[in-house]
Design a protein around this nucleic acid. Structure first.
Lengths: 109, 109
DNA sequence: TTGATAGTTCACCACTTGGTGAAGTATTGT
DNA sequence: ACAATACTTCACCAAGTGGTGAACTATCAA
């Protein structure tokens, strides 16, 4: 698996479905951080965080680089743009029809 | 669980992480559909689709109503807007910094 | 060199997922 | 009444998830 390979929506959405991982992403908006810098405020253990980072990296959302004994983590651009684009289509759609079902059922008795 | 309760990002993203369920959502953009109308083009079995619909309903993405022996399914608005909003923040952020990590590591040798 | 620090890897656990086929329920058409 | 239709529910399975503690590796600092 190449580090910044285009990840599918499957793994991107799956990665974002975990609150700890979303917290990691939110933390990384402030700038790159090491594993312990990420783990401490989340009161997550390092083994657990290692797994979460693997998921985020597989999804292409996060890049990491080892510097000495520290591992720096930072956000990546592309995959989330795809996910956002996918959602944006539906957000636009829903702005128009808020209650498609009851409307449909009224029109088709 | 109330039918259109505001669902957390957890369940929304988890619901969208499955390709079959995203296909269901895409199909429902064309308008409401029954279970078999959803199942057939996806070549999914009805038991499997029943489970997927349960996930989509728990996430608040889809509403269903039973009419006789048919079950009509349609999209719902709110939860995906939250997910889209969450992602939009990051999309905007990533437009600015495409390679935060290498930038950071260069500035902090 | 010795010891602390930073992180990884391992085996293991309970739990959830997505799928199946078979059986069951309820509505509808003849 | 009977049979087909439209689903649902059930028990089950294989695979994956998130978490743990303990052991291991690698770097850095004294």
């Amino acid at each position: 698996m190449s580090p910044s390979a285009p990840a599918s929506l499957d793994v991107v959405f799956a990665a974002l479905s975990d609150p700890t991982r979303r917290a990691v992403v939110e933390r990384l908006r402030l700038g790159p951080a090491t594993m312990t810098e990420l783990a401490t405020p989340l009161s997550a253990t390092l083994p657990a965080l290692t797994k979460h980072l693997a998921v985020l990296e597989r999804a292409g959302l996060v890049t990491t680089a080892k510097r000495g004994r520290q591992r720096f983590c930072a956000l990546t651009a592309a995959p989330l743009r795809d996910a956002a684009a996918w959602l944006a289509e539906y957000a636009a759609y829903w702005d128009e029809r808020l209650d498609a079902l009851t409307g449909y059922l009224k029109e088709n008795p």
